[in-house]
């Protein structure tokens, strides 16, 4: 078993809570994990990416080889496209549709996504709206994790345990709201396929 995930977004969007939840899940299951992330200058509103690798055998490289990722999980639509060369042709792309516009030349991406969808499996989800509907507007990243979970080779109950581990310190209510968000995202993807 192995799942190689490219996690992408914009500095400050908190993609690391997704990585941390999966990390905790992997560790609970005694899986091997490597997760390389972006710190420093680009965190200031720039493009950020994390390579997340989970397997039931030791992992060598901290970086995913080109054409090898099983999943691109992006909390921002344009950033989901930046790392396409990493995606395996059989892989899936799951992205939030909420645009983060902090540049003057943000392109219209509709046509690009329509074109891409002919060749690869794409799930586009308005995670911000779904998060609001579940009563926790801050939990859109957990909606995203839920939406991507059918493509991750870890049982969803185990990921939920990972979420519990990560948010435990913030109290039971926060844990529950994040799990609700996760489930809503997962439901969205399962209803599409």
């Amino acid at each position: 078993m192995k799942t190689d995930i490219i996690l992408s977004g914009v500095g400050g969007q908190g993609i690391l809570s997704i990585a941390a939840s999966l990390g905790a899940a992997a560790l609970n299951e005694n899986y091997y994990l490597k997760q390389a992330e972006t710190h420093g200058m680009s965190q200031r509103g720039g493009a950020v990416v994390s390579h997340l690798r989970i397997a039931d055998h030791p992992i060598y490289s901290d970086l995913i080889p080109i054409s090898n990722a099983d999943l691109i999980l992006s909390v921002e639509p344009m950033e989901s496209l930046r790392y396409l060369p990493y995606l395996s042709p059989e892989g899936s792309l799951v992205t939030n549709t909420a645009e983060f516009v902090n540049i003057p030349d943000y392109p219209d991406l509709e046509e690009t996504f329509t074109e891409l969808a002919k060749n690869i499996n794409i799930i586009r989800i308005d995670a911000d709206r779904i998060a609001k509907e579940t009563g926790n507007p801050k939990a859109s990243n957990m909606v995203m994790l839920g939406a991507a979970s059918p493509f991750i080779a870890i049982h969803d109950e185990i990921i939920i345990k990972g979420i519990e581990t990560i948010f435990k310190a913030k109290g039971e209510k926060i844990v529950e709201m994040n799990i609700e968000a996760f489930k809503a995202g997962r439901e969205f993807t399962l209803s599409k396929s």
Binding site: M78, L81, R82, L84, P89, L109, T112, L116
Partner: peptide, 12 residues
């Protein structure tokens, strides 16, 4: 797979 040409850079 190719990165679409329409993409804009996002510097810090």
């Amino acid at each position: 797979l190719k990165m679409p040409e329409t993409l804009a850079g996002r510097p810090p």
